[in-house]
Design a protein around this nucleic acid. Sequence first.
RNA 1: UCCGGCGUCGUCUAAAGGCAGGACAAGGGACUUUGAAUCCCUGAAUCAUGGUUCGAAUCCAUGCGCCGGAACCA
Length: 756
Amino acid sequence: MPAVTADRPKDFIRDIIDADLAAGRHQKVVTRFPPEPNGYLHIGHAKSICLNFGIARDYGGVCHLRFDDTNPTTENVEYADAIMGDVRWLGFDWGDKLFYASDYYERLFELAVELIEKGLAYVCDLNEEQISDYRGTVTEPGRPSPFRDRSVAENLDLFRRMRAGEFPDGSRVLRAKIDMASPNMKLRDPLLYRIKHAHHYRSGDRWCIYPLYDFAHPLSDALEGITHSICTLEFENNRDIYDWLVEHLTLPARPHQYEFARLNLTYTVMSKRKLLQLVEEKRVHGWDDPRMPTLAGLRRRGVTPEALRAFATRVGVAKNNSTVELALFEHTLREDLNERSPRVLCVLDPLEVVIENYPEGQTETLEASFWPHDVPKEGSRKLPFGRRVYIDRSDFSENPPKDFFRLAPGREVRLRHAYVIRCERVVKDAAGTVTQLVCSYDPATRGGDAGARKVKGTIHWVSAEHAVDVEVRLYDRLFQVEMPGAAGSDPLADLNPGSLVTRAGCKAEPSLGAAAAGDRFQFEREGFFFVDPVASRAGAPVFNRTVGLKDSWAKAVQKAEPKAEARPAKPATPGPARAREALSPEAQALADRHGLSPEDARVLSEPGPLRKLFEAALALHANARGLAAWVVNELPAEARAGNPLPFGAPELAELVALIDDGTLSGALGKKVLAEMLTSGGSPKAIAERQGLKQIADPAALGPVVEQILAKNPDTVARYRSGNKNVLGALTGMVLKETRGQANPKLVTQLLLDKLG
RNA sequence: UCCGGCGUCGUCUAAAGGCAGGACAAGGGACUUUGAAUCCCUGAAUCAUGGUUCGAAUCCAUGCGCCGGAACCA
């Protein structure tokens, strides 16, 4: 079994797989990633891809890439191609396991025929509106279609003629015959096939009937021998159809569906529909706009597949509806980019500085490392320095706030890799805007070495004479609120107007003139940048800001002048629980007659299997309270629903008797019960077979307690220093040591005695 | 309202009846030729109420809250 590491995560799906493998239900794991080629993949899909392909990798299995292309009117090759490119870019390989639902059309048709022949499907002539009407509502059952009882022969004939193109679109459908009154609306005779005289991007005009997802998906899984079909939570209700189909049809395999929570991110929308709308309404510049959460957009923004995979691992896999903070993604991104991005200097908002004591016409070259000391990489470049340089406008303040380390009149600052300079004068235009700073430099600080002097601030700069002009695109979150479209509003109303700021004429150090498409840099003190592969020209790179650096100064400034930003209110906290309802007369009678707790009496007063079991056992062993406690608290939920138990009242009575006479402790009783639940049998026999007998002799337990205490000095120390919770842990250890046979009360007492 | 799913620090996620842990975020500090990175520290949670148990986030009951479900979409 694979060890859990950062890259080998553990989650409830892997737990299921572990159990399936251990039980021998499968020898090999086969998963699948099933996109529909009707849009671009986004970061939410990345989570699913990492899960499915990751499981295949971890368990030595395979993951299929299967296009769920059952809707000819929305799908096309461009999308399919883009999806394949994206999956590959993310770092996954499906080998020769590339499949299309559209390749199964013939076999799916045959399976539909089998269903009809079994009397489990029928052709329905109701129109769309009628079907919806007949379906009922969530609270009212549906009504059977008038076509529900057509003969097999007629259904077969009609279905074949549907295929032959004899009927117009929408005139007929094939439906499964399941249950029009099912509380699960998905089971109210779901549609299997619809007529669509439409050209399909792969099957062309060969078909005019197309299967629906609920039919095509489980069957495709079965045909491919998928073992674990993993999808998102909104398909939970569809699982019943899934199971119904794979159980009623003749198929080579019996796959199972499991659902996990899809990824949501703050300041982002993830629905395909909304994303499509952003593109179609030109709110962004296409699917690969770097502000989009699509893989194409993220890639163009400069996000790496490694960062995406690490992120997928970090967010985990569970069934909670969850929204991950964008900050976690940004952190994961910076973590990855930090290691791979050479440091360079680029001034985004240039302000000219003239160094008045630096000789006119002189230029010198400084050596500057590409890497900070804590990134274990080598390499440097030459940085020209001259009398005129640019610094960033935000690195100067005429009236510096408290703790401002940068340049201000009369103050010193270090130019990264160069010299310490002092601001001597400020030059302004008629409007009062600062246009130039006149500074002096200290020749003794060459290379940035300030000697004994303490210079708190270091800023980036570029030689004016040597700077190359570049375009920089500063991307920010696409939406300005955490939950775009919350409370049913239009998310597009929450678009961040500042999500893209394009800055031409940024001053970059000369080495950047040669930057090639796809290169990554850190502009020191600014952020991580990526050379846009689309907009860049040879010698004229365009830099996309992938993500800014963390900026604790900006945070401090923001805190100083707090802006009210209302966080969306937490969902209402539950009010006080309602007062306990009075016991019903039957329950009260039961409680009085047997001395039961009100809680147990209430449960047992309900007529049902529990009640019967209790009464039958009571006739055999006269301990009502004990029996009630076991029946009410320890029997699984299925027993309540009336599923037959592998044992009956005599065994239950025997179990409680064993506990009452001290042969078994409660804990041992539970062990025995677990065995009874799986394979039935007499508790006495089970206890004997497993050699379970309560140990309640202090002389026998004393040494074990000593031993555990001696082996766990740390835990003992924690107990002595006040953590009384560890008493339970120690009790647990003693219990484990005795295979659960020690009497826990006695153990606790012994422990207490020894610990003082 | 019916069916299904889910409720653990602000967020995401662990803990298979036995020490409620980790990460991000937050706050503080050290270091610093990037107000970055790194390192250290702090605060911060089991939806509620009952029950079972030596011991409950975990089992049982009741309630509350949130999400999904009535496409010829997937």
